[in-house]
Structures are given as structure tokens and as C-alpha cells.
Simulated assay, not measured.
Amino acid sequence: MWEVRLAKHLKADLGTDTFDLVQVPTPEPAAGEVLVRTDYLGLSVAYLEMLRADSRLPIPPWEVGQRIGGGAVGTVVRSNSAELAVGDLVRTMAGWCEYSTGPADQYPGLDPDLFPSPVHYLSQGPTAYYGMSEVAKAGAGDVVFVSGAAGGVGSLAGQIATCRGAAKVIGSAGSQAKIDYLVDELGFDAAFDYHDGPVLDHLRELAPEGITVFFDNVGGEQFDAAVEAAAPGARFALCGALATQIGDHEDRFPEPDLTAAAAKGIAVLPFSTYHTPEQVAAWTEHFSTWLSEDRFVFPHTIVEGGLSAAPQALVSLLKGSFKGNVSVRVAS
């Protein structure tokens, strides 16, 4: 079988030479274990930090020579456990590999009939739901701004705000095609291209009453503009800072100037989502319900080409080439 390992820690722009595709023996399951075929890999912009030796994430970065990690869904192809049968759909954290093995309890079973496709289990919804519902507590009457709204988290966060009763949801993105996508397909009330003039001007035009919730995936200028355009007492859920994740360790995560935010009584709420069973269950329940009620769209791209396509897919994701969530089909 094949797996993808880290060839070198990232110090500049990400390229496919950061990864090695390595052939290794297919593992054999021991007593109580299962052999799982990886069907789909999920990709995330958070992987950018995991590729760095000086990662600022609250989990250890990947080491050179280590298999790239991350979530996936797969199928049990051999079982030495009464807990799982051949053919069962499971979640796996084994990472970028064609097959993996381990104790059955490390592979939570999934309902194959709950969603239209197994890739729905790879959405970044737990992060979006936790941040929008539990951190920002968006609800009836809120005016919500989502930065990086066409990405995997943002495209879900905006829809979650709408489902929770927000009065207006505004998104920022990097092209006219993505703006049209947010408004025409995902139901955002308005969207703008952050390249097209000062962000603050857009926010003042689209939300003259002031934004009350900001779900920030980007940081930088968009955070500063959101502070200026916020209503007193607004809640800011800080999910990421993609605009600043370049350069040296100190430059990638500059501390935001919170003086203006404090003066307006803005609650600045950085958060991390650890995909606990409770967080995943809460998202899965609401996601499946909203889909069945036709209140929600799952924005996603499936990259073909097998495991060897994963490195380039991640490079393309970080360049903004996709809309919504991105997964790689590993098994043909």
C-alpha cells in the first residue's frame, strides 16, 4: 500500500515537495483489530500549521518522516473483532494512507444512510457549529459577518447562523465567482470581494446598523474592519488567522490590537475545536436535520486521483482554488 509522509518542515510556500509518497507493507490486523480501507480523506487549512516545526496549534506538529495525519472515512475489509463487521463504514484518524489497522474501538462506526454521501462525515461542521452556536451564540436578530466565507468552515458557519435565526448574514471571499456562490447557492444575504476596496467600506454599506457577531477565519485587515463596523457589545468568535499564517513564527500570529474592541465592549472569543464526541454529535444531529428540511447546502469538492493527489489538493486548497469543504477520493 501507499502512504504520504512529511518530507521536510514547511518554512516558505507550500509545495508538493513537502511530501513523500512511500510504499509500505499493508498491515495485518491482530486479534480484536480491523483492517480499514481509506475511502475519502478530509483536508483542512489547519494542516498548514501542522507542517511547521514551530506550529502554534495546541497539538504537536507532524515530524519529518511521519505519516500525514487527519480525518478520513473508510470501510472495514477484514475484521478480527465482534464490534465491527466487514463492510462497515467507519471514521478513522489514521491519516494519509490507503489502509490502516488497529483496535476496533479506534474506528467509530458511522450510519451509511444518514447522509447522501460518506464525505458529509468529513465536513468542518463541528468547528463551524461550535464556534457559531456555543462561542458566538448567534441567534435571532443578529447581524453576522463571516470572513473567509467560501472556505470549509466559513461556508457552513454562515448557513448555521441563518438556521439559528440571524437577521442578516454577510460573507467575504476572494473572487466574484465565490461571492455569487455565497449569495446564490448558500443563501448569504450579501457578500463582497475583500480585494475590492477597504473592507470597512463594504461592512458599513452592507451593515449600517453594525454587526453583532463576527466569525473570523482570516484575521488581519478584516478583523480590524470588523471592530470598526461592530455594534457595541458584539461577539467575535476567532477561528483562525489564515491571512497572517506566513513568514516566521512571530510574524504569523501577531496579537490583534484589542484597545478599540474593548472600548466598544466587544467580546473577543478565540476558540479551538477538538472534535470531542459531544461536539461531533451536536453537529451531526443538526446537520442531518437541516439537510432533511432543505434548509442547508453542503458545499464540497471531491478531488479525484487517489492518495497521490492529496499533496497537490492541499496546495490548491491553501491557494483558494476550491469552494467549501474538500476531500480526496482514495479508493476507486
Rank of each mutant, 00 (worst) to 15 (best):
E134P: 09
G42I: 00
G141F: 12
Y40D: 00
K11L: 04
G171M: 01
E304N: 13
D17R: 06
P58W: 08
K178D: 12
G197K: 09
D13V: 14
N80Q: 02
A31E: 14
Q245A: 13
D105N: 15
A104N: 06
Y274H: 12
V218G: 00
K264W: 06
A234D: 14
S44Q: 09
S288A: 15
R235V: 11
E98L: 04
G305W: 12
L307N: 04
A282S: 14
D224K: 08
T212V: 06
K323R: 15
G139R: 12
Y130K: 15
E63N: 08
K168T: 09
Q176N: 12
G247V: 00
G70N: 13
G32L: 00
E63Q: 15
V146P: 06
L114P: 06
E49D: 07
E278Y: 13
L51R: 05
T75N: 02
F223C: 00
P270N: 14
R5Y: 08
I68Q: 03
D111G: 03
S133L: 10
A261E: 00
T38L: 01
G265V: 11
L156G: 03
R235F: 05
E221R: 10
V146T: 01
A331D: 05
T276E: 11
H249C: 09
F253K: 09
R78G: 04
A310T: 10
Q159K: 10
P208Q: 13
P108Q: 14
L84F: 01
L182Q: 08
S172Q: 03
G74S: 04
H120N: 11
I246D: 15
G174Y: 12
W62L: 15
M50I: 08
G71R: 05
L206G: 03
A53M: 07
S55I: 07
G165Q: 14
L317F: 06
A72P: 00
V24P: 03
V64W: 14
S316A: 14
P311L: 07
T244C: 12
R91N: 02
L10P: 05
T162R: 15
Y107S: 02
A82F: 03
A243C: 07
L238A: 13
G69P: 01
H275A: 13
A166R: 02
F298G: 02
I59E: 01
T273A: 10
Q106W: 10
A260G: 08
A261V: 07
I246R: 15
P198H: 10
G109I: 07
T301K: 05
R329I: 04
A243N: 06
A166L: 04
G154S: 07
V64P: 10
D111N: 09
Q279N: 10
P118D: 03
V119M: 02
L51Y: 11
G141R: 11
L307H: 05
D248G: 13
